[in-house]
């Protein structure tokens, strides 16, 4: 293992994690061959199950990025996203005993993450007051002109489109929002969405079909407020 790989490994693992998992493996042989500084996810999970929080921290270092990206998609503000990511990791820790090494840890973790995000969306919908968030005049104007122009999205368009899509999804049911985000924003195949959500492939397709219809109607409702030729 070269110095780059070693420093990479050192960055991934918090201090003390090696020692608590397998010191012999961490040290390796004298000639440097056979040394494997990075324990597998399975080993880290096993250590975390036995209460070793440093091993769990190593798992967080390794997979934290994807979890955080997902939390940012569903969390709303940055602080909501951090709360959601924390919730995901706490649930993952509580459910570690349910992880079977047959599938990669990341798949299992993403299932926990999707489930937690879905629960969060449902809770938020239950608790929030009915407020129909309208677009700002600037967003309304952008939507009207951009949609009719059929132009390739520029840097500003991408940001505005993401904002408008976020507003649209915010009006939708949690299941609709989840399925459309996973399929169309995260660009995941139907089978993967089915595996992540625990729904059947047929259910995913039906939900996506209905969700697209609802999103179309919402979009139409917004755009029809500004009747113009060509729309």
């Amino acid at each position: 293992m070269g110095p780059t790989a070693q420093s990479h490994s050192a960055r991934l693992l918090p201090t003390g994690a090696h020692a608590s998992i397998d010191l012999a493996r961490a040290v390796g042989t004298a000639d440097g061959k056979g040394a494997n500084l990075e324990p597998t996810d399975g080993e880290l999970v096993q250590a975390a199950r036995n209460g070793d929080l440093t091993a769990f921290e190593a798992l967080m270092h390794r997979h934290g990025g994807r979890v955080f990206a997902m939390a940012r998609r569903y969390g709303g503000s940055e602080s909501d996203a951090e709360d959601l990511a924390q919730e995901i990791w706490i649930k993952a820790y509580q459910k570690l005993s349910g992880y079977r090494a047959a599938a990669p840890f990341e798949h299992w973790l993403m299932r926990v993450a999707v489930r937690t995000c879905y629960d969060q969306l449902r809770a938020r919908r239950r608790n929030r007051e009915l407020n129909f968030t309208d677009l700002s005049p600037e967003e309304q104007d952008w939507l009207r002109t951009w949609v009719t122009s059929n132009a390739e999205p520029g840097f500003r368009d991408v940001g505005m489109a993401a904002e408008v899509v976020h507003r649209l999804l915010d009006q939708m049911k949690p299941a609709d929002r989840l399925v459309l985000s996973l399929l169309e924003l995260e660009d995941r195949p139907v089978k993967e969405v089915a595996a992540l959500t625990g729904w059947s492939v047929a259910t995913v397709k039906v939900r996506a079909f209905r969700a697209r219809g609802r999103m179309r109607r919402l979009l139409a409702r917004w755009l029809e407020r500004f009747p113009r030729e060509g729309l």
């Binding site: 934290g64 990025g65 994807r66 955080f68 990206a69 940012r72 998609r73 990511a85 949609v147 999205p153 368009d157 991408v158 940001g159 489109a161 993401a162 408008v164 899509v165 976020h166 649209l168 459309l180 169309e184 924003l185 660009d187 979009l219």
Partner: peptide, 14 residues
Amino acid sequence: LMRAARKRGVSEQP
């Protein structure tokens, strides 16, 4: 709209 929104990446940095 969805295609354009997809182009805005989400940061993975905690």
